[in-house]
Computed example of a mutant assay.
Amino acid sequence: MSDEPPRAAGRTARTAAPALLATALLVTGCGGGHKGASAGASPAGGMEKLPEATTYTTLDDLPRDEAPSAKSDGTVVHPDDTVPVSAKPGAPAVAELPSTQLKGPTWVPVLESRPGWRRVLLPSRPNGVTGWIPDSGLKSARSSSTVKVDLGDRRLTLSRDGRQVGAWSVAVGAPKTPTPTGRTFLLASLAPEKPTFSPLVLPVGAHSATLDTFGGGPGTVAFHGWPTKSVFGKAVTHGCVRVPADALKQLAEVPLGTPVQITD
């Protein structure tokens, strides 16, 4: 097991395809929405193709996270290649987890381990969907960071090795478009070539509970900056978490796959 997975603002984010960077904000719930494919959908020709576990898909045949408030030990894994995803260890695969997400490496947190298998949190809908993947062909690491968002206090806290390193007042989802609660993780890092309101967008593995589609992407929740400081401390977003510049800079150093805990 290596010490840490790649950091959010590492080489992958800076070298992502220009087309992706130009539409980075369309991926998120702040400007994104795309009706994802559902598990079990059959393509033309009648042969069923397993859906990919990405932020664009809905996986209804897999179990949900039954302990969304539980703490993770920081173990994260990255598949070297696409791996099958099952509802139980040894059960038939109902999805596939690709080795990349949004032009970057896929790192997902481990919730449970059994001989030969890892239960991981997935980036698809519904929020909190999990699956079992074979332990072979995985790179394993540990993130020492933890990100917490308290929606009631509208406050973000970043800790490393159990020690708080920063806390900021943030803007969260409005009452009609709330930020979803529960356990999720840092999914990717996107740097728009022509940023309109944030130099960096950090999607997480959760989606808006009220917006199925918005502006052309899957409604993925994300951390991002905002040019107007007056929004911080308010519930005004489409579900994303708007953060001050210093918080965004700190979050950019957080490794992919790092657990994110969002509470009421």
Rank of each mutant, 00 (worst) to 15 (best):
W132M: 04
A24W: 04
S42R: 07
T263R: 09
D212G: 09
A206E: 00
T210D: 06
A235L: 04
V241W: 07
P68Y: 06
D60Q: 03
A245I: 08
V170F: 02
P6F: 04
S69V: 05
P123H: 02
V83Q: 13
A191H: 14
L62W: 03
V254E: 02
G137M: 07
L102P: 09
P180K: 12
T184S: 15
K249C: 00
W132S: 06
S124T: 12
L20D: 04
P218E: 03
V201C: 13
V221A: 02
T213M: 10
A167P: 03
T23D: 08
F223Y: 13
R242N: 15
V231Y: 12
G131F: 12
A13K: 02
A44T: 10
A19S: 08
P115A: 14
R119S: 09
P255M: 05
S124A: 15
P63V: 04
K88T: 07
K229W: 08
T220L: 11
R14H: 14
D135K: 02
G29L: 00
R14G: 08
G104P: 03
K148Y: 02
F232Q: 02
P18G: 03
V129P: 10
K176G: 09
G225P: 08
V260K: 02
G166Q: 06
S189K: 09
T220Y: 01
G74W: 01
A222S: 13
T184M: 03
V129N: 04
P5N: 15
S159A: 12
V108W: 00
S169P: 04
G128F: 04
A252I: 02
T179K: 08
V170C: 08
H238A: 11
G10H: 10
G90H: 11
S69W: 13
P175A: 08
V236T: 11
V147P: 05
G31T: 04
H78N: 13
G29Y: 01
W107N: 13
G36E: 14
H224L: 09
G10L: 05
A19L: 13
S38L: 12
E48K: 10
R125A: 07
S145Y: 10
P98S: 06
I262G: 05
T228Y: 12
A222E: 09
H238S: 10
T177V: 01
M1H: 07
L248W: 00
V170N: 04
P180S: 10
T12Q: 10
A206L: 00
L200M: 04
V76A: 15
S145T: 13
D212L: 12
E253V: 01
V170S: 06
T54L: 09
V236F: 00
G10C: 01
G131R: 06
T28P: 02
L20E: 06
G152M: 07
A8N: 09
T210E: 14
V204S: 01
K176H: 09
M1N: 08
H238Q: 14
P115F: 11
G40T: 06
D246G: 03
G216E: 04
R142I: 01
P84L: 12
Q101V: 15
I262H: 03
K71A: 14
P43A: 15
P126M: 03
G166R: 02
P180G: 14
P195V: 03
V165P: 03
A167H: 05
S208H: 06
S113I: 00
G45E: 01
